[in-house]
Design a protein around this nucleic acid. Structure first.
Lengths: 331, 331
DNA sequence: TGTTATGGAGAGAGCGATCTCAGGGTCGGG
DNA sequence: CCCGACCCTGAGATCGCTCTCTCCATAACA
């Protein structure tokens, strides 16, 4: 007992396959009563189009790969970034009837697997979210003649459109805010330096300090809460007099806040703290976190739009979204 | 400039399409020198089989959906369970040349989307990891005549094979261990009661207490670390004399440990603690956590095997893997 | 030498959709 | 009343592959 085919639907409705196909694909050039007959037949038979047959002739699959090029432990960490990107990309593409296929590319072996899958034409395009500098995937995929876009500027210079947020500018705004408050010893907890976001946010910090006659005090974390606490303790050891910290993401800022509390420093009285990302948790810290908004959903939407542009043959230029300082109580 | 077809490969190698196909699919009935010629042609043209055309005739897609029926926030939480299942399922299926397609089914809307995708025949089978009682997906999918297996016993009674671990038995072993140590007031931090794992582990706790003439003291968490801390504080309020706690998963146990420390209780001297799952972090707590091993990788492998059995037409009976008490320092 | 296995290659029929193109109505205008 | 325009519908080719079936060549045996 096989699944019903379009042929069966057509027979039952008393029309040709072509007409049935027209109805299935929502063409308007079909007489209403015939349309209804076909729809009824579809319903009665429980017809669902065979995607293989369809994509064989259309040369489309209507599915898009979201390749996350990170070890699973990072993807499935407490960082809500990936979850948000995945969810909003799915949502965004759902509205144009495309399905997101999530692929994790951690090891070199899984890279090869992903490449084979993409090269095989299983998907119409690729959204890449890869943050590490050494990642060979962006260039590998761009060679495959498949439409590829990236979430965030690829670390390796490679000619694929991307949607990013203004990491440098955001960091500059944050640090300038601390300068404007008259803070003198402004430290930073930077992100990992093999990630473009980590680099750019540190650059922003340095830019402002350079122009404002202050010495830079840097500790490096890896974007996890734990590493934020560790880095904060280290900074307090390096310079017990520090009166402000710019933290490269909110997760580390939460850890830093904890470390400051344990060290008996009041925030913002003794030490002002600015984070980056504006994750949900930033509202609920004690005190609520002043931070730079990283528009994840908008950035994802922009990335999706870039991909759709590529499909349409339109030119797709990189997009950089502005960030905005969200002032709460920690600075 | 289109992708080369099998026809092109055959032409270049001077053989028929059928022979080229035989080589591509690794059949042995091809003369070595012809085989080589075809392989060379494949290499020179950069030929990759068209999956749509292939699955149109074979009626296979060689991809398997892993449907995670949880809100993304839970999937991408600090709980390493999902990451491990995803990784080991991919690994396991890779060896039989099948690709895992990850689908998140959180809302009712995404349920419909997943169902449509599966019904469309995009995948050969489905692995379901769904923990909530009210989840309509198991029964919905089982109606679709697609091979479906489940990670963990489905909360609704439905006829799909599953691989589970012995939650009840594991909990019993843990609590018995506490009884054997002469603990008198043994509390539990249970998991969410709309999840089968949460229910079963509480059942195990109750079974042993009932037989050992002790009163049960229950607080309920939601498997997150935070909720473990909250529940522990509540238990200490309810019965300041308690001398042991069985915690339904390690994540909550970590939180409980923290709460106990803050309350000035020594572990295991004042209060003994047993967790469940044996996650990596359990080794590194202070003191290291005594816990029940939940064999995630083996269980995933068993689930994959069940699915492959279904493909082969073999009967697939539910599998329940044994758990084992891992004794460290907390009890 | 004739006959039967046997191994290896090719011809051709599908798989289930889309899409172009041609043909048969209906209608309005001359 | 005839004809061109227009709107629907159907016939049939096509997408790229697998797989059965047939056929040929060589080997093995009597």
């Amino acid at each position: 007992m096989r699944r019903p085919t379009l042929e069966a639907v057509a027979a039952r409705a008393g029309v040709s396959r072509a007409t049935a196909s027209r109805v299935v694909n929502g063409q308007t050039t079909v007489a209403p009563h015939i349309r209804d007959a076909v729809l009824r037949a579809i319903d009665e038979l429980g017809y669902v189009p065979n995607p293989a047959a369809r994509s064989l002739v259309t040369q489309r699959t209507d599915s898009i790969a979201l390749v996350v090029s990170e070890p699973p432990t990072r993807v499935f960490s407490e960082d809500p970034l990936f979850a948000t990107v995945i969810r909003s990309a799915s949502l965004e593409l759902e509205s144009v009837n495309k399905q997101v296929v999530l692929m994790l590319a951690s090891s070199a072996k899984s890279h090869a697997r992903v490449e084979r899958y993409i090269a095989g034409g299983h998907v119409d395009g690729v959204m890449l979210i890869s943050m590490h500098g050494a990642d060979p995937l962006p260039s590998a995929l761009s060679r495959l003649r498949v439409p590829v876009v990236s979430y965030g500027r690829p670390a390796v210079p490679v000619d694929i459109p991307y949607a990013d947020n203004d990491n440098v500018g955001g960091a500059e705004t944050a640090v300038r805010h601390l300068v404007d408050q008259g803070r003198r010893r402004i430290a930073t907890i930077a992100g990992p330096q093999d990630m473009i976001g980590g680099q750019d946010r540190l650059t922003g910090y340095r830019n402002v300090l350079r122009d404002s006659d202050r010495r830079s005090i840097v500790a490096v974390g890896d974007f996890t809460r734990e590493s934020g606490a560790v880095a904060m303790r280290q900074l307090l050891g390096d310079d017990p007099q520090l009166d402000a910290v710019f933290v490269a993401n909110d997760l580390m800022a939460v850890g830093a806040l904890q470390a400051l509390r344990q060290a008996g420093r009041r925030v913002p009285d003794d030490v002002a703290l600015v984070g980056f990302d504006d994750i949900e948790a930033a509202k609920y810290t004690e005190p609520p976190l002043t931070t730079v908004r990283h528009p994840v959903i908008e950035q994802t939407a922009a990335m999706v739009r870039l991909l759709l542009d590529l499909f349409a043959g339109a030119p797709a230029e990189p997009v950089v979204l502005p960030t905005a300082l969200v002032i709460r109580d920690s600075a």
